[in-house]
């Protein structure tokens, strides 16, 4: 748990981030900044999907399916947003220290979750069409 608070403190205090290594070409920092923003918009899109499911979907025949879809999208979006700022800070640090950029399984995991979720919904729609 100590590591989590440490990381959160670091997000809010970039002076510490700027104290390590050397200041890189500003274009690298700006590219990292835009990548963070692109991830954040991905998270916001998932959150918007969750909020839209909660208010625009009719009650589904499967008990609580609408609520499950909505909460799943919202939690996924929140995870993407929080992970985006953490990854931004770790990447910035790596750039300043001239180290390898942090490797991450997150994009692959996210893609799998979205794909599996979509397939499950396809099955649900087809099952309903047949039944």
């Amino acid at each position: 748990m100590g590591g989590v608070w440490e990381a959160i403190r670091r997000w809010f205090d970039p002076r510490e981030l700027r104290s390590v290594g050397t200041t890189p070409d500003y274009r690298f920092s700006l590219a990292n900044e835009r990548t963070f923003l692109a991830w954040l918009r991905t998270g916001l899109a998932l959150i918007a999907g969750g909020l839209a499911a909660a208010q625009f979907l009719p009650k589904l025949p499967l008990a609580h399916l609408r609520e499950v879809i909505s909460v799943a999208l919202l939690l996924l979006g929140a995870t993407v947003a929080v992970r985006a700022v953490d990854h931004w800070a770790r990447t910035e640090r790596a750039i300043r220290l001239n180290e390898e950029l942090p490797a991450s399984r997150f994009p692959a995991v996210l893609a799998l979750i979205v794909a599996i979720g979509a397939l499950l919904l396809v099955v649900a729609v087809l099952a309903r069409g047949v039944g």
Partner: peptide, 27 residues
């Protein structure tokens, strides 16, 4: 502002949590 990055990300996550609370309340 030095808080731009974490604040914007946490605002997004906060919106998600508010939505979850609403859905759970509706149940």
């Amino acid at each position: 502002h030095r808080w731009s990055f974490p604040l914007t990300a946490l605002a997004a996550a906060g919106m998600a949590l508010l939505g979850v609370l609403h859905v759970l309340r509706g149940l």
